[in-house]
């Protein structure tokens, strides 16, 4: 029998167990699941190998039977957004995966080919040894360890067409989950964040609470919807639909720690190749949401993709909020009482 006080970190502000903010090694355990709960799973989306095919968007909608919508979430409507090949526009109640397209370019003076005009030596030229190739890399090599630089030179310009499949972050400290007054949003045994559609009464509090703008209310339904990381598939040991469909394994599903290790390797490989701007987003567990369950390898500033550069879960400041709420309430009681002191008039 635990006392209510243990839940009072929100009021008192002392939060040794990082119950409101900061890294949490076993968030599933902290939410009451038995010790033999499954390992926390999540997504690592490596946008450097994303080909913008949107198979993830379709696979997700087919599995979750989502309605068709246009770039503003208006059900059964169509709209060209003009945002390059992205006509989905944003994550929402009917689009739980959203592939972003950003066209970038810069001028560059065309470099001469590295080798002097060949042909000096007759017949076969000696070949500088190519980078070591791993013959025994299994047929299903999942990560593109040493793929070449990501900007493609195209004549006298270099063009980069960034593509990235955005998804709910399944944060360690999920503001949507914290603020949900009905307990519809909850932490599953896999450490993911899911809306229980049979409980949600559409109060909409989670929508402005999410620092990434993921969850949204479905217009003609009233309830809110977002990626469940295919919670029903996970209960049967299946990979989520988007991760199964992704042709280049840009979306990788697995245990979060394994994904984080693989992401670090991948980042190191890309930076060694001089791929500018490669960085991980949401991998660091000391960030504003305690690290994300679905994190990314990006090739430019997060805001270029429409992601917040330094998101912080609002629950971090909740203790301060309750303090001033309490003070305000006391003030009202005090002042109204003071209005009755003194001569009766």
């Amino acid at each position: 029998m635990t006392t209510i006080s243990s839940a009072s970190a929100a009021f008192t502000g002392e939060d040794p167990g990082n119950r409101l903010f900061g890294p949490v090694p076993d968030v599933t355990g902290d939410r009451g699941y038995a010790d033999d709960h499954p390992a926390r799973v999540g997504f690592f989306t490596d946008t450097s190998v994303c080909i913008g095919c949107k198979a993830c968007e379709v696979a997700c909608k087919e599995w979750n039977l989502l309605p068709m919508d246009d770039a503003e979430g208006t059900v059964d409507a169509l709209g060209l957004t003009g945002a390059s090949y992205d006509n989905t526009g944003m994550l929402g109640a009917n689009s739980w995966r959203h592939v972003a397209f950003v066209e970038q370019s810069r001028a560059v003076d065309l470099p001469m080919p590295t080798v002097g005009l060949p042909g000096a030596a007759g017949g076969q030229r000696p070949l500088e040894d190519p980078p070591v190739v791993h013959p025994q890399v299994p047929a299903s090599a999942t990560t593109a360890e040493q793929s070449a630089p990501l900007q493609t030179s195209s004549g006298d310009r270099e063009i980069r067409w960034l593509m990235s499949s955005d998804v709910c972050k399944h944060c360690t400290h999920a503001a949507c989950l914290d603020v949900c007054p009905t307990g519809s949003l909850f932490r599953t045994e896999f450490g993911t964040v899911v809306v229980q559609e049979d409980i949600c009464n559409g109060c909409g509090y989670c929508v402005p609470a999410c620092p990434y703008g993921v969850i949204d209310q479905r217009q003609d339904d009233g309830r809110v919807f977002k990626c469940t990381l295919c919670y029903d598939r996970l209960t049967d040991g299946l990979q989520p639909a988007c991760a199964s469909a992704c042709p280049t394994e840009s979306i990788q599903f697995g245990d979060l720690d394994a994904l984080q290790a693989r992401a670090d390797e991948r980042l190191a490989a890309l930076q060694a190749k001089g791929v500018e701007g490669a960085r991980l987003y949401g991998r660091d567990e000391t960030d504003g949401v305690g690290g994300a369950g679905a994190f990314f390898l990006l090739l430019d500033e997060p805001e270029v993709y429409g992601l917040p550069p330094d998101p912080v879960v609002t629950t971090r400041d909740l203790p301060a909020m309750w303090k001033s709420v309490g003070a305000g309430a006391a003030m009202v009681l005090g002042l109204v009482a003071s209005a009755f002191v003194g001569r009766r008039r």
């Binding site: 913008g52 890399v137 360890e145 040493q146 493609t152």
Partner: peptide, 24 residues
Amino acid sequence: KARGATVIHVDPRFTRTSALADLH
């Protein structure tokens, strides 16, 4: 490409293939 291959894409248009190629 992961094993070091060079991908060259020859096309009037810069397409999603070009985005992942080394040279368009």
